[in-house]
């Protein structure tokens, strides 16, 4: 929490003049589960970017590469893994139902605090 300011130090009328300063508020601590990029080849399709409710998919837009997750803010909802077309393909090919943390998945969801590998 930032230092609380006095009434003479803040803009009037409740205005917030620093657009997008919510990035300073870290919501990553909410997370019970964490997304991890698995071994399967990411096709950099950006579907996860498209559906993330928290704008937490890190991409190199110019080079069109998916880089990973903004874990300072990611709340661990798991939508990225649910919409991942590579995940869907891996699941279709698998003989049995795969767990969310199956290492064959492109994006897998593990419990927060669990080791990634």
């Amino acid at each position: 929490m930032a230092q609380l300011k006095g009434w003479k130090e803040i803009p009037i009328g409740g205005m917030i003049l620093e657009a997008g300063n919510a990035v300073e508020y870290l919501t990553g601590g909410w997370r019970a589960f964490r997304p991890v990029r698995g071994e399967a080849a990411c096709t950099h399709c950006f579907q996860c970017w498209l559906f993330c409710p928290d704008s937490c998919i890190l991409v190199d837009a110019e080079n069109e590469k998916m880089l990973g997750f903004n874990l300072e803010h990611c709340k661990g909802c798991g939508i990225c893994a649910a919409v991942c077309p590579v995940n869907a393909q891996v699941r279709r090919k698998a003989e049995q139902e795969l767990d969310r943390d199956d290492p064959r998945l492109c994006i897998r969801i593990i419990e927060e605090g669990q080791a990634e590998e």
Binding site: W7, G13, A19
Partner: peptide, 15 residues
């Protein structure tokens, strides 16, 4: 700019 945010007990009184 953002007008009309949610203002809690930490700043409402200052406004």
């Amino acid at each position: 700019m953002t007008y009309g945010p949610l203002d809690f007990y930490d700043y409402y009184y200052e406004h």
